[in-house]
Amino acid sequence: MTSETVTLTELERDALTEIVNIGVSRAASSLRKMVGAHVLLSVPSIEVVSQRRAARLIGEREIAQLVAVRQDFSGPFSGRALLIFPEANSLALVRAVAGDELSAEELVEMEHEALAETGNVILNGCLGTMANMLQRSLSLTIPEIIKGDGAVLFDAWGQNGTDGLVLFLYIDFSVRQRDIRGYIAMIMNLPAITALSELLGEFITRVVGDDA
């Protein structure tokens, strides 16, 4: 299957951008309640790229080590969702979620649990909204915490050294009055992109009718 056969049409891309926007906005609202500060979001960027290109897109923005909450999702379309932070930001997020009065030792002890909880809330909120708007259901794995550079984080489908094409859906965010910034990314392989394209077609028909 070539990249041309799975590239989303402009209308499908617009529909996916709108759906993701709504999902991420709801997830950001949940994060705002957790940290007590406004969350600023970028407009989603959606591209079909190689895994290495996806890794470079993050690497161009962050030269430091990264921490990510990773959840795989499956259903009518499947893939991997990542909530990514520069490693230096992760403890700032833990402090914001768990309490500013914690000592440095307590922060380190709580890092894994707090990051997993935060990732679960945000990624579930985003994916749940997408599934609802597409009138389907998705199953998510338990959150995992991974650390490394972009190459480690985006080796989602790169078994046996392959570098397959993926749908790279990317949003960056920051928390006002906190030293917290990060990224939300979703990676889907070619069969998943094809399935998603069909669901987006159904969504467009429901919203604007058969003339779309």
Score class of each variant (00 low, 15 high):
Arg26Val: 08
Arg26Lys: 15
Ala28Thr: 07
Ala28Pro: 14
Ser30Pro: 03
Ser30His: 12
Leu31Thr: 03
Lys33Cys: 05
Met34Tyr: 07
Val35Gln: 09
His38Pro: 01
Val39Arg: 11
Ser42Ala: 11
Ser45Val: 08
Ser45Ala: 11
Ser45Gln: 00
Ile46Gly: 01
Val49Ile: 15
Ser50Ala: 08
Gln51Ala: 14
Gln51Ile: 08
Ala55Asp: 00
Arg56Trp: 08
Leu57Glu: 10
Ile58Trp: 03
Ile58Thr: 06
Gly59Lys: 02
Glu60Ser: 03
Glu62Trp: 07
Glu62Met: 14
Ala64Cys: 05
Gln65Lys: 12
Gln65Val: 14
Ala68Thr: 01
Ala68Arg: 07
Ala68Leu: 15
Val69Arg: 04
Val69Cys: 01
Val69Thr: 03
Gln71Asn: 04
Asp72Met: 01
Phe73Pro: 12
Phe73Ser: 07
Phe73Ala: 12
Phe73Trp: 06
Pro76Asp: 15
Phe77Gly: 00
Gly79Ile: 14
Gly79Asp: 01
Gly79Ala: 09
Arg80Tyr: 04
Leu82Phe: 09
Ile84Met: 14
Phe85Ser: 02
Glu87Ile: 06
Glu87Ala: 06
Asn89Leu: 04
Asn89Pro: 00
Leu93Ala: 01
Arg95Gly: 02
Ala96Tyr: 08
Val97Pro: 03
Ala98Thr: 00
Ala98Arg: 00
Gly99Lys: 08
Leu102Phe: 00
Ser103Asn: 00
Ala104Gly: 02
Ala104Lys: 10
Leu107His: 07
Glu109Pro: 15
Glu109Met: 11
Glu111Ser: 13
His112Lys: 15
Ala114Asn: 05
Ala114Glu: 02
Ala114Asp: 01
Leu115Lys: 02
Ile122Met: 15
Leu123Met: 12
Leu123Cys: 13
Asn124Val: 13
Thr129Val: 15
Thr129Trp: 09
Met130Lys: 06
Met130Tyr: 08
Leu134Ala: 09
Leu134Tyr: 09
Leu134Arg: 10
Gln135Ile: 11
Arg136Asn: 07
Arg136Trp: 03
Ser137Cys: 06
Leu138Glu: 06
Leu140Trp: 10
Leu140Lys: 09
Leu140His: 10
Thr141Ile: 02
Ile142Tyr: 04
Ile142Ala: 13
Pro143Ile: 10
Ile145Arg: 03
Ile145Asn: 02
Ile145Trp: 05
Ile146Trp: 02
Gly148Asp: 02
Ala151Pro: 02
Ala151Glu: 04
Ala151Ser: 10
Val152Pro: 00
Val152Ser: 12
Val152Thr: 11
Phe154Asn: 05
Phe154Glu: 01
Asp155Ala: 14
Ala156Leu: 12
Ala156Cys: 14
Ala156Tyr: 04
Ala156Phe: 13
Gly158Ser: 15
Gly158Ile: 11
Gln159Cys: 06
Asn160Gln: 10
Gly161Pro: 11
Asp163Met: 11
Leu165Gly: 05
Val166Met: 14
Val166Lys: 12
Leu167Gln: 08
Phe168Asp: 10
Leu169Pro: 11
Leu169Ile: 13
